[in-house]
Structures are given as C-alpha cells and as structure tokens.
Design a protein around this nucleic acid. Structure first.
Lengths: 245, 245
DNA sequence: GTCAAGAAAAGTGTAGACAATTGTGCAGAC
DNA sequence: GTCTGCACAATTGTCTACACTTTTCTTGAC
C-alpha cells in the first residue's frame, strides 16, 4: 500500500503544469535562451514530454511575472534582461528592502528580531566557504527574513518575484568572489542595526549594500550575455558537466 | 483603416483570452464573487461564450497577480481582500510611491516635472465636480505619472499591479467624498514639492496622503463586504440591471 | 437520527485536433 | 537582379474529449 498510483506507461503522473513552469523558468533564469528569442511551444512540449496545454499555462505565468513577453498571434518571447532593466530591478529591490527594514524596526518584537540575529549567527562563520548555490540561498534568505519581519506579506511576495528575476545574475556575481568579504561584514552590521532598531543606519547599509552590488551585477550580466552570444554549442568544454548538484 | 475585422457570425473574432481576463477581473474587482468562493471554470466559460481554455489562461494570470489563489485539483478561489491585506497593499504602495518621488526629484528634468504640473493644473479646477470614475482615473494617473517620471519602468509596473488590486476600494472611497477637498489640496502641494525637488516634503506628503486614505479605505471595505454578504441575489431591485455601460 | 461507505455527479488537468494567423519560398513580371 | 503575389508550411489560439480527483448524494448499518 505504497500509493497505488502506478504509472503503467507514460501516463499522466503529477502536476505537469507546475513541473513545466519550473523547468521553463530554470531555462530562462540560466539564459538557456537568447534574448528576444521566440519560444516555440511545441518544441518545449516535446522536450518536456507533455502537451502544449501545461506549457502555455506555464508561459502565461512567466509572462505575468515579467520573464517573457507575449505578442498576440506571434507567441512568447524571452525578454532580454538588459542592463537598464537590471538596474531598475536592483533599484526597486533596494527601495522595498529599505521599507521592509524600517517596518521591521517599528513593529517586530525583540524575539522576532532575534530570529534575524540567530539566522545570521548560524551561517556567518563558514559563509565564505560554502559553494555559490548555498550562498545564494542564504543571502536571499537573509533579505527575505527582513521582509517577513516587516509583518507585511505583500512585501515578501514582491521581493520573491524580484529575486527570481535577478537570481541568475546574482548567482554569477557570487562566483566573482571579489566582495564576498564585504557581504559578510555588511550583513553583520545590518543585524546590529536591526537589534538596535536603528532605522537610519540599517537602511543606509542596505541601500549601499545593494547598490554596491550593482556594478558587480553589471559586469556579471555582460559576461552572461557574452556567453550567450558566444554560443554554447561547442560541447568541448565539460567544465561543469558532471556537477554533483 | 478602421479595422477590417468583420465578425460574420459567432465566429472567433478577437483574442478571447484577453477579453476573458478583463471580464473576470472586472467581476473580481467589483466583488461580484464572495470572498473565498470557488470559481467554476465551466460556468464562467458558458457565461462568456468561450471554452475553458481562455478562461483558464485568464485565471492563471489573475492568480499570478494575487487576485485569486489556485489549489491543485480543486481549482481557483477568490482571495478575499481582507482588512489586513488592504493595509499591506496601501503600505507597499506608499513605500513605492515615496521611492518613486525621490527618484523623480533626483533624475527628472525640469521639462519632465513640468508634465506633472501641467497634468495637475489641467484637472484640478473641476476635479471635485467630476464623477467618481473619472476621479479615480485621474487620481491613479497622477500617481502613475510620478512613477513614470522616476524613470524606472519596473516601478510603474508594480504600481499598476497594486492599483488594480485596490481599485474597487478606492472607487467606493471616492464616493464617500469626505476628504475630497484634502485630496485636491494635497496633490497641489505634492506638485509644488516636485517642482522644488523637495524630497523630504514630497515623501512626507505622499506618505500621509496615502495613509490618511487608509482609514477611509477600511470603512469602504467594510461597506463592500457587508454588501457582498447581504447578498445581491434578490433580483427584485433592478437598480443596475439595465446599466447602459 | 447519526454516521460510514460506496456510487454517482461535478469539476479540474491534460491531451489532441482543428481553425486562424503568421512566416517562407517559389514563380513570374518588370 | 529585384520585387510582387500567391501557395504552402509552421505556429498560435481555441475547442472538444477524456482521465483523474474531489464533492455530493444515496443507502444501509447501528
């Protein structure tokens, strides 16, 4: 009695809409498609082994989230995240995070703000030794926790949506370890400001923290675009072929 | 050149997905559905004269935008906009608009800021005499123009999305004309601050302007919910039966 | 009368087919 | 050689059908 849901052949097994959404978003986030490239629904459907219906559902969701654009009767296009859009998103992110920090200082209880401190104390020691994927998760987690402690779920949602769109760049950026050190330090300072409910210090730190990463992000994006246009069809280099995770 | 798109019979004419989206959103925005009510796709499809496919597309979009929620295998539910969510959205809106104002002061040229002044000068005279629908459009337009002048299109998008979700409440609120007067006055003061690039004054005005409307919005929401639960199924009153448009 | 279990009904999730539109290539005019 | 039409191919938008899941209804035990 271990789930009688046998899957005799290639029959419907799970929520393929959700799977399609995640798979496609992964491709977008990793720049598997070229900017402004048309997205072929049938090709996607075949490659994921489902029909066009869940594909279209996923594409519609992605369009709502700003990843892709829909032109009537011509289909979906991968919306290039150009430098301008990147700056805009970072700017919006800084704005929202500063607001969240302010609200947190005004409203979060001591116990709640302790959660932020505990979180950061728990990871800061070996933060720099972790691999980039972990760092990304932890960094997003840190900033999201501030958003949560603001007590405003809408802020959390917005921040999550923004994070998804800039995640790929941040991922590259983290590999360029240049200012990793500052990050650890700055996060600690932000925690200190939070414990003291020091709005001015915290927002100033956040603002410069995020804005400082912008120049790095620009470089990362340039690299990414270069890679995309250089074409990855030369399968010669298996640099990251057998990545364990 | 008046669109040669004839529609011989009941044949597929235009993008029914878009029409469905707008129609459904209108129903949501106007609280035609009860909070937490399950949305029946087939019924919607029949009432709009299309199949379930464009309906589902529209529902997915609306779910991405936060209007409704999707529970797997159980369908879409109208997400009640309760008092808390309303406050959260107003808070987020204030945060974003203050940020937009700041950016506008930093970056918009004199000519651009003149656009704001011209816009407001053009409508403020007979602002209070207009009907509520016009006022709503003008008010949203005023605030959106600030967002546009920030030079950050992502801010504009966010603000539009938020506006859509609180539009119904604002519409009711405007009818309760109580603080209409303050609105005209405050908008003028905001324009003044913008012309002087006075960030502190402008953001303070915006913040209190938006927060001041919160209490009104709360009352409006209470009224709306009351109406919804009082039921409109008594078709005796044809109050808005033959509404021309 | 209440509750439980099972059957029937209703509804969602996905597939596949067709209609409408857009894109492409070929033939012929100039 | 280039351009204009026109047929044909590719692709999107929508519909219908059906499998699976959830909900409702019915029936019978207690």
């Amino acid at each position: 009695m271990h789930k009688p849901k046998r899957t005799p052949k290639g029959r419907r097994s799970a929520d393929s809409g959700e799977r399609a959404y995640k798979a496609i978003r992964k491709q977008l986030v990793e720049f598997k498609l070229k900017p402004d490239q048309r997205i072929n629904e049938m090709a996607l459907a075949k490659s994921l082994g489902v029909s066009r219906t869940p594909i279209r559902e996923a594409l519609n969701r992605l369009a709502s989230e700003g990843f892709i654009a829909l032109t009537p009767n011509r289909g979906f296009f991968f919306k290039a995240l150009d430098i301008d859009a990147l700056l805009d998103l970072y700017e919006l992110r800084a704005m929202i995070e500063c607001g969240a920090f302010t609200l947190m200082c005004e409203r979060a209880s001591d116990a709640e703000r302790d959660r932020l401190k505990d979180f950061w104390d728990g990871v800061k020691a070996d933060y720099r030794e972790r691999d980039p994927d972990d760092i990304l998760v932890l960094d997003e987690g840190f900033h999201l926790l501030i958003a949560e402690l603001s007590g405003n779920p809408e802020i959390v949602n917005q921040l999550k949506a923004i994070n998804a769109r800039i995640r790929f760049i941040r991922r590259i950026q983290i590999q360029h370890v240049s200012h990793d050190f500052d990050m650890v330090n700055t996060h600690s300072q932000i925690v200190d400001a939070a414990m003291k409910r020091d709005v001015a210090a915290g927002t100033a730190l956040l603002k410069s923290h995020i804005e400082m990463t912008v120049s790095g992000a620009q470089r990362a994006l340039k690299d990414a675009l270069l890679n995309v246009y250089m074409e990855k069809s030369d399968s010669s280099s298996g640099r990251r072929a057998s990545r364990p995770r």
